[in-house]
């Protein structure tokens, strides 16, 4: 398993480096759901290119298909037509080789496991030896600021701490892609603000590519280099806005006049489409 995944990753890397191909690519992806007699176009002919190392946010009203697009990349939803790829790997190969890590909306935890055992879950499934996975889980926990909570149960943590634990779990696999589905949606604003900068720091340290689904304009601007605006019925991309606020961002970035400018731009893009 390990040698096979290493081989395919090397192949994918060489391929993308040789062709200069991007990280996350969608080409003409359409997804149709049938609900009774109704046919719903969740995604219609979506093409997208997120270069590796980019922090990308996907924003749009409910039902615009942003979560569906993330699920296509996660190999949870199969496109009706078109293709999606990570570094040249299909979503199924990416999942099998654990190239991406998923952070879900509700910071899903297994309540009967301690925090460290929850964080080590991905490595446990991958067959990593116990001492190694505990060591790496402890590293991840330290990275998200949860040192000292290893033996706690998830129910003993606050919502923000559980979300950090979910991010730590994703990080233990050292993913190239972090697929996050409204990860901060359920948190209070103060906690959310703090986690934004922690996520940015973690991305700088790990060099992972971020693919974040959000419905918060401020969150999209502060976290990303590229904002993909989507519109519903049928779900499609209406605009891709490059956010030029530099690589390193701090709470002061929000006071930058350009921050307000991008917020306004996004708001207009969203309202224009609605």
């Amino acid at each position: 398993m390990t040698s096979a995944s290493a081989a395919s990753l090397t192949r994918a890397d060489t391929a993308s480096e040789a062709t200069g191909a991007a990280g996350l690519v969608a080409q003409g992806v359409s997804v149709t759901f049938r609900r009774g007699t109704q046919v719903i176009d969740a995604l219609k002919d979506v093409s997208l290119n997120i270069p590796r190392g980019t922090r990308a946010a996907l924003i749009g009203a409910s039902g615009c298909g942003k979560s569906t697009l993330l699920r296509v990349f996660a190999d949870i939803v199969q496109p009706t037509s078109g293709t999606a790829s990570h570094y040249g790997l299909t979503p199924a190969e990416a999942r099998a080789n654990r190239v991406y890590a998923l952070v879900q909306q509700g910071s899903t935890m297994l309540p009967w496991r301690t925090v460290i055992d929850n964080v080590a879950l991905g490595l446990e499934i991958a067959g990593t030896s116990k001492p190694e996975r505990l060591e790496r889980a402890a590293e991840s926990l330290a990275l998200v600021g949860l040192k000292g909570f290893e033996k706690s149960l998830p129910a003993e943590l606050s919502g923000g701490m559980r979300q950090r634990a979910a991010i730590a779990r994703a990080l233990t696999l050292r993913p190239r892609f972090l697929l996050m589905d409204e990860p901060f949606g359920a948190l209070d604003e103060i906690t959310r603000d703090r986690l934004h900068f922690e996520l940015l720091r973690i991305l700088e340290e790990t060099g992972a590519t971020l693919f974040l689904v959000t419905h918060s304009i401020a969150e999209a601007v502060i976290l990303s280099d590229k904002v993909v605006v989507m519109t519903p019925r049928p779900g499609r991309i209406s605009q891709v806005i490059d956010v030029d606020l530099g690589q390193h961002r701090t709470p002061a970035t929000r006071e930058d006049p350009r921050f307000g400018h991008y917020e306004l731009m996004l708001r207009r893009a969203l309202h224009h489409d609605a």
């Binding site: 190999d75 999942r95 998923l102 879900q104 899903t108 879950l121 499934i125 991958a126």
Partner: peptide, 26 residues
């Protein structure tokens, strides 16, 4: 079993037996 937990294990490429032992049984 909670669908989010099932989806998490699926995204981690867990086998059906692993899903059974680690999520469904508990």
């Amino acid at each position: 079993s909670n669908p989010d937990r099932m989806e998490l294990l699926y995204s981690l490429s867990a086998s059906p037996t692993q899903i059974l032992w680690k999520v469904q049984l508990p």
